[in-house]
Structures are given as C-alpha cells and as structure tokens.
Amino acid sequence: MKRYILTGTPGSGKTSILHALKSQGYSVVEEAATDVIALEHRRGNLEPWMQADFIDKIIQLQKQRQIETGMCPDELQVYDRSPICAFALSRYLGYPPLFVC
C-alpha cells in the first residue's frame, strides 16, 4: 500500500495540489469535513459541528470516498487530510475516540 496524506494549514494549497495530482491520473481521496459543513450550511444549519452526529457524518463520507478510491489496493493514493484528521477533530470537539479504517 502506498498512501500519502497532504496536511497543512488552511489555505496552504493542499486541495490545489490534490486536484493537480488527480488531473495527472493519480488516485486521490478528497477531504470530507469541508463538504459536510457546506451541505449543512445549505440546509440552514450554521453550526453543524455542534450536532452530536457531526463527526459521524464526516467519517461516513470519508469512508465512502476511501472505498470508492481504494478498488486497487496496490495503487498509490493521496489524501487531502485524512481519517487521522477526523480523529483529531473529534478529540478537539470532545467526542469519544473513533476508529476510522
């Protein structure tokens, strides 16, 4: 397995690099939290991180993206952040530890 995680501060270019790699044919797994927040905002929920199922929604989307991308286990994969980041976020928000695999 070849897995790489792009990490860094907001606005540092992680997603731009990921999109460039994807356009070159690399297998990528996009970050899920931003999309979950955007969806909740469109639904009128301005503070989705305050909901008890916020982390669950992120984990579910992240796992779905991993499964969709991981059809070839030997293939190189690049993650925009990672399940590890979702774990760190859950700890920061005071939720119990999660196992994301």
Rank of each mutant, 00 (worst) to 15 (best):
E47M: 13
P97D: 10
D35S: 06
A20V: 02
E47D: 14
V36Q: 01
D80Y: 02
I37C: 10
I17V: 11
T34N: 01
S82H: 09
Y92F: 14
A20P: 00
R65S: 09
I84M: 11
Y4E: 01
I58P: 02
E31C: 06
K63S: 14
G11Q: 12
D56G: 06
Y4D: 02
C85H: 15
L46F: 03
T69N: 10
E75S: 14
R81G: 04
H19P: 00
L98C: 13
T69H: 00
S12Y: 02
S23V: 06
R91I: 09
M1D: 11
K57R: 15
G11M: 12
G25W: 04
E31A: 01
P10R: 03
F87E: 11
S12F: 02
K2T: 14
I58V: 15
S23Y: 07
L98S: 12
S27N: 14
S16M: 07
K2N: 15
V29Q: 10
R3T: 09
A86H: 07
R65F: 07
Y95M: 01
K2I: 09
D53S: 09
H41F: 15
L39K: 11
I17L: 11
L76N: 06
L76H: 03
H41Y: 14
A33K: 05
G25L: 08
T9H: 07
S12K: 01
D74P: 05
L76M: 07
S12V: 05
Y95Q: 11
S16C: 06
Y95W: 00
E31F: 03
I67P: 00
V28E: 09
A33G: 03
Q77V: 14
P73T: 08
G70P: 12
Q64C: 04
E47F: 08
A52S: 10
V78G: 14
T34S: 13
M71T: 14
Q77D: 02
E40Q: 12
E40L: 02
S90E: 08
Q60I: 14
L46D: 09
Q60V: 13
G94C: 04
L39H: 13
P73Y: 12
M71N: 13
M71V: 14
E40S: 05
G25M: 04
Q62L: 08
Q60P: 00
S16P: 08
P10V: 08
N45Q: 07
A88R: 10
W49N: 11
A33V: 11
P10I: 02
Y92S: 10
E30N: 15
